[in-house]
């Protein structure tokens, strides 16, 4: 009743109007900062467009049935295709997935369903993060020393199998982490419900928890496969390369990524062109897988 006036005897500057004043220092600063952030965002998006445009134009114009189904030409010759590399990428990636998915899902199940927060699970989680950070070329060196140099598979050195194993080492941390985090999201009540009707641990995990976490796990696995399909470094001295059609999994095999690497640095135009064409196929496959992963996580949301 008596104190009707606001505190005017303050050390704050005068604040008379409520109107927006673009000339104020803070508002000018805001405008500049907005512009800088917008510029940076544009910078971040530009490379994607440039790369995509070139891959689509340079590679896309070469695509034909012949290109997708024939063998690459000998150096100096023209024509030919990348059929063996496409098939090889699929084979090597499949081998990697067939190793990494069961191992990774199993490991993730252990971490989220069985492990108490003891030293072992802490070590595995830590080791998983470290493994995820190991440079992919080191995975190649590892598998080379372990499998290629020792000729462990039927006295064969370079092989599709070795390449697949190298890629699986790369995929493993992704699958484990994805499974672990996906399972953590499954509400405890759901497991309780299953235990409550007398289900065993095994049944609860495989029939309740894993299906409930299917979406995040599938999303992560698809992304992991997509990343592995584009990897080159672990393959250059494990799967090596081959100008011929795949000859079983215990022989060297062509892959698109290694083909791009080999053919990009060759001084022949025909080979350079095949590198662009392989880039096109690879990028389409990988972006397709990424969009698929996104679709999986969207489609099941509703």
């Amino acid at each position: 009743m008596s104190f009707l006036t606001p505190p005017t005897t303050s050390a704050f500057g005068e604040r008379l109007t409520l109107h927006y004043d673009p000339g104020l220092k803070r508002n000018r600063f805001n405008q500049i900062a907005n512009a800088i952030a917008a510029f940076f965002a544009a910078l971040a998006v530009v490379p994607l467009f440039l790369v995509l445009i070139y891959v689509l134009i340079q590679g896309g114009r070469l695509i034909s049935l012949q290109l997708l189904t024939q063998l690459p030409p000998a150096p100096g010759l023209t024509g030919g295709g990348i059929g063996n590399a496409i098939l090889g990428t699929i084979i090597v990636t499949l081998i990697a997935a067939m190793i990494a998915i069961p191992v990774g899902v199993g490991g993730g199940v252990y971490l989220s369903e069985y492990a108490r927060n003891g030293w072992f699970s802490r070590f595995v989680r830590f080791g998983n993060d470290v493994l995820a950070g190991v440079p992919s070329i080191i995975c190649g060196v590892f598998v080379y020393s372990l499998i290629v140099a020792t000729r462990i598979f039927f006295d064969q050195s370079y092989s599709a199998m070795a390449g697949g194993i190298a890629l699986s080492v790369l995929m493993l941390p992704t699958v484990i982490k994805t499974t672990y985090e996906g399972l953590l999201l499954v509400p405890q009540e759901m497991r309780m419900g299953a235990y409550g009707v007398g289900a065993s641990r095994f049944v609860t995990i495989t029939r309740i928890a894993l299906p409930a976490a299917f979406t995040p796990i599938a999303t992560g696995v698809v992304l992991g496969i997509a990343r592995a399909a584009g990897e080159t470094a672990p393959l250059i001295f494990t799967a090596l390369f081959s100008p011929f059609w795949p000859d079983g999994v215990f022989h060297p095999i062509a892959t698109m990524s290694v083909l791009i690497f080999n053919f990009a640095i060759m001084p022949y135009e025909a080979q350079n062109e095949l590198a662009w064409a392989a880039s096109f196929v690879l990028v389409i496959m990988i972006l397709g897988a990424n969009l698929l992963a996104r679709w999986i996580s969207h489609a099941t949301r509703s």
């Binding site: 409520l18 109107h19 927006y20 508002n27």
Partner: peptide, 12 residues
């Protein structure tokens, strides 16, 4: 002032 006038600065 009408606080929702276009010219009003919400920070203010």
């Amino acid at each position: 002032h009408d606080l929702y006038d276009k010219r009003v600065d919400p920070v203010e």
